[in-house]
Design a protein around this nucleic acid. Structure first.
Length: 271
DNA sequence: CTAACCTCCTGTTCGC
DNA sequence: TGCGAACAGGAGGTTA
């Protein structure tokens, strides 16, 4: 499941190669989460100026307008030169002078949306409420601390909501909370200064480490050059229900929280 | 405003 | 061995 590290690793794996490319043709397959928002042929002859990321969205800047790409649950991109056979889950192609950017997404929770500008209503609806970027300088401790204080919801839900900090999905929320010694169900506002600070550091640390490891490949994630990630080998709690905690040996527990599974060590994460 | 739930989708896993 | 049910969850939308 692509979270921030997977999206960032994907971005880095094709951004330099696609920069300056001119669009030759566009293929749109089965419907994704939202419609493209323009006639596919309208994109022909546009030039890809750069690739940015905001939260889990990739922003493909064109010389006029931009494409918002989201990988959803099961999406991955490939960027390659030449032609290669399209599989049944390949639902979008952007063929350019430098190669073909192709979205593969079996479950089709992903999206490719064209907008005229980041200020367009559609873009604003999708991007406007996003929280701080954990890997950037705008991830500020005072703001994070204040955000926690302001919510009585369970800390894991606050992290997943993305209004305070973006990009933290189910895997990395569980891992960061383990590193900080905080139980996923703890009310955000009740977390003390020291542990809140530890969580702030843990989010940064786990995101940086995951990017360095190429993300997590649980089923079939790979970056746009086809390489898999390795962070899943380092997971302390995610997917380890019933296995001994790396720190204390207590068996890791899995509990439903909201509609999701949360993993934690009942001893290292007491409250 | 918040919080809980619903929804989209298909490959994989599980129970009988 | 087969087959349907349950599960996986990002995240916007809906409802209370």
């Amino acid at each position: 499941m692509p979270e921030l590290p997977e999206v960032e690793v994907t971005r880095r794996s094709f951004a330099p190669a696609i920069e300056g490319a001119r669009v030759l043709s566009v293929f749109v397959g089965k419907p994704l989460r939202w419609p493209l928002g323009c006639a596919p042929d309208m994109l022909i002859d546009r030039v890809v100026v750069g690739v940015r990321r905001r939260g889990k969205y990739l922003l493909l800047d064109l010389d006029q307008g931009l494409l918002l790409l989201h990988l959803g649950m099961s999406g991955s991109l490939r960027f390659m030169q030449g032609e290669w056979p399209r599989g049944q889950h390949d639902h979008f192609d952007l063929a350019t002078t430098e190669g073909v950017l192709r979205l593969n997404d079996p479950r089709r929770f992903g999206a490719v949306v064209y907008v005229d500008s980041e200020q367009a209503p559609v873009a604003h609806r999708l991007l406007g409420r996003l929280g701080m970027e954990p890997l950037s300088d705008d991830f500020r401790w005072p703001d994070f601390r204040a955000g926690l204080r302001g919510s009585n919801a369970a800390i894991k839900q606050v992290l997943l909501a993305g209004r305070l900090v973006v990009g933290v999905g189910n895997i990395y929320a569980s891992e960061a909370l383990f590193l900080a010694g905080i139980r996923p169900t703890a009310p955000a506002a009740g977390i003390g200064m020291v542990r809140a600070r530890r969580l702030y550091e843990a989010i940064r640390q786990v995101m940086e480490r995951a990017v360095a490891q190429g993300g997590s490949t649980l089923r079939n994630f790979s970056s746009a050059d086809g390489s898999a990630g390795h962070f899943q080998r380092e997971a302390h709690v995610y997917g380890r229900a019933g296995a001994p905690c790396h720190t204390c040996g207590t068996l890791v527990r899995m509990e439903r929280q909201g509609q999701r599974s949360s993993f934690f060590c009942p001893r290292c994460q007491r409250t």
